[in-house]
Every structure is written in C-alpha cells, then in structure tokens.
Simulated assay, not measured.
Amino acid sequence: MSGLTTIAVRAARSAGDFLLRTGERLHELRVEQKGPNDFVSDADREAERRIVEIIHRSYPDHAILGEEGGAQGDSTARWIIDPLDGTTNYLHAFPWFAVSIALEIQGRLEVGVIYDPTRNELFVAERGQGARLDDRRLRVSQHGKLAGAMIGTGFPFKSVDHLDAYTETFKAVSREGCAVRRAGSAALDLAYVAAGRFDGFWELGLEKWDIAAGVLLIQEAGGAVTDIRGGDRFMATGNVVGGNLRVHQALLDTIKSHLGDDLRA
C-alpha cells in the first residue's frame, strides 16, 4: 500500500469511527437543509474536518474538493471527499452510509477508499494495483445479462428535472427481469459493484465526491464505468453507468433510448 493510500485509509477510518460514536447521540446533532431532500449535519462537517486535517498533516500542499468545504487549494494533486455519503440514512439510524475519499493527480484517479463503519468494511483501490476489500482481492461479478441480475440505483432527488427521464429508465431496466435496489448511498453501491455484490449500477445527477472513489474501485476490479452515452464524461455530468462488462453494456443499451435530449447531449 502506497503512502498516499495509507493516508486515505487512516482518514477514512478516523471519520468513520467518529460517525459511529456520534451516531449514538443523533438527537443532539444540528441539522440544516442545503436544498430539496439535501441535508447536512454537524457530523458531516466534523468528519470532513478530520479527513482534511489528516491529509494536510502529510500533504499540506494538496488541494481538496469536499462536499461540505468545497474547493480548497490549487495543486495537480486533489483529494475528492464525501465525509458522509448517505446523510439522510445516517440521521435516521439506517445503517447504509459510508466515507468516500479519492485522490486525483493531474486529472486521473489514483486512489479510492470507501469505508463502511457500520460493517467495518474497507474498500481500497490503487491505479494499476487492483481493488481490495480488507485483505481480499475484488473482482466484479460474472453475471452475463440483465435477467436475474442485481442492480443498484438511486433516485435523482436533488435533480428533479431528471425525474421523468429516470423513471422511464427505471421502468425499462425493471422489465428486463432484474432485481433493482435503492438504498441511499451511491458510494457504497459502487463499492458493491466492485465486490460483485451488485452486477451493475446507474444513477443520474451525482456529484464528483459521490462517485470518484467508487469509479476507481470498479475499474480496478475489472469492470466498466461510463456516462449514460457510453463516454468518459461521468465525472462532469454525474450521470453514471457501471458494472461488469456485459451488464454495463446491457444497461447502456436498455436505458439510452429512454433519455431526453438534454441527457443524451
């Protein structure tokens, strides 16, 4: 494990352990609404502060892009941080949330870490070194078609303009005979694709911090991630399709005819 990855793991565990402790007194948290169905709590902010502190202790010149703190610094090395992916779940004591940390160097993802503190599962990817869950090497599933597949997704609750298009894609995928699951943390959904627990995933309107670490995990586990046109603009658009190679292509083929012109463009 490289020094950069070691720092990412240390930061993720620190934030995750803090979230678990704080989760025992949720009634004391101050919660604010950032937008429709979009909440932030003191726990999100403090978890991000701890992550940034650990990173800057070793790499003070590195830039930060955090969900809560926004963009900080100017460097070719940038950490992309979601300190609590699944805030609404967390605030309701629903145990499906994670810490997501990625490192991008000169625009290319190099490290991805997703930590599920509830299950004490640590997903780690390094470019060219594969992906691991704790000490086990990860590979995407071998399921070859949508029928019988387990597919993760998320509703575009922050981007209501996408809701009609998303609903049509949901209908189309569901008709293929697969099981579709929506639990509320895109980071964990992507990690589960890398681990072969989900065969595929799609969602519209995500942010960079939601997907950066999970994208690298899937790629290093032998899978594919694209935007909904099959291109590489997923970090810019937030419209993501991922999975093992065959399910990824089947998802693309199924959903693309149900998208509006604004999403195809």
Results as ranks from 00 to 15, higher is better:
Thr169Arg: 02
Trp79Asp: 06
Gly214Phe: 00
Val124Pro: 00
Ser14Phe: 08
Asn244Ala: 14
Arg108Asn: 09
Glu176Tyr: 11
Ile151Asn: 00
Val215Ala: 05
Arg139Ala: 14
Arg78Cys: 10
Asp44Tyr: 06
Ala250Ser: 14
Ala12Asn: 12
Ile255Ser: 04
Asn239Pro: 10
Gly73Tyr: 02
Val193Gly: 00
Gln33Thr: 12
Glu68Cys: 12
Ile151Pro: 01
Gly177Phe: 15
Trp202Thr: 14
Arg78Asp: 04
Gly200Phe: 04
Leu138Asn: 04
Gly128Thr: 02
Asn89Thr: 09
Val9Met: 05
Ala98Met: 03
Asp232Arg: 06
Ile151Ala: 02
Arg25Tyr: 08
Leu188His: 04
Thr87Trp: 11
Phe198Glu: 08
His62Glu: 15
Asp44Glu: 06
Glu110Ser: 03
Gln219Ser: 15
Leu204Asn: 08
Gly23Val: 14
Ile51Phe: 04
Val241Met: 04
Met235Ile: 15
Leu29Ser: 03
Gly238Ile: 07
Arg132Trp: 08
Phe39Glu: 11
Glu126Leu: 03
Tyr90Gln: 07
Gly66Ala: 06
Asp116Cys: 07
Leu29Asp: 08
Asp17Gln: 12
Glu53Ile: 02
Ala265Phe: 15
Asp135Lys: 13
Glu126Ser: 10
Ala187Ser: 15
Trp96Ser: 12
Thr76Gly: 12
Gly107Lys: 12
Arg49Asn: 13
Arg21Ser: 13
Leu138Gly: 02
Trp209Cys: 07
Val173Phe: 00
Ser75His: 07
Glu46Cys: 04
Asp161Thr: 03
Gly238Asn: 09
Ala224Leu: 12
Ala236Val: 09
Glu53Asn: 08
Asp199Arg: 03
Gly107Cys: 07
Ala236Gly: 09
Trp209Leu: 07
Lys34His: 04
Pro60Cys: 05
Leu251Trp: 04
Gly73Asn: 01
Thr118Met: 15
Ile114Val: 13
Ser174Lys: 08
Asp210Tyr: 14
Lys208His: 07
Glu104Trp: 03
Phe97Pro: 02
Arg182His: 05
Ala183Gly: 08
Leu245Arg: 15
Thr87Asp: 13
Gly260Cys: 07
Asp82Thr: 01
Gly128Ile: 05
Glu207Met: 12
Phe198Gly: 01
Asp161Phe: 11
Glu68Thr: 15
Glu176Val: 05
Ala186Gln: 12
Asp253Phe: 10
Gly260Ser: 15
Trp202Ala: 10
Ile54Leu: 13
Ala195Cys: 09
Asp261Ile: 14
Glu110Ala: 01
Asp199Ser: 00
Arg57Thr: 09
Gln33Trp: 10
Ile51Asp: 05
His56Val: 01
Gly66Leu: 06
Ile64Asp: 02
Tyr59Ser: 05
Glu104Ala: 01
Gly144Lys: 10
Phe170Pro: 00
His62Ile: 09
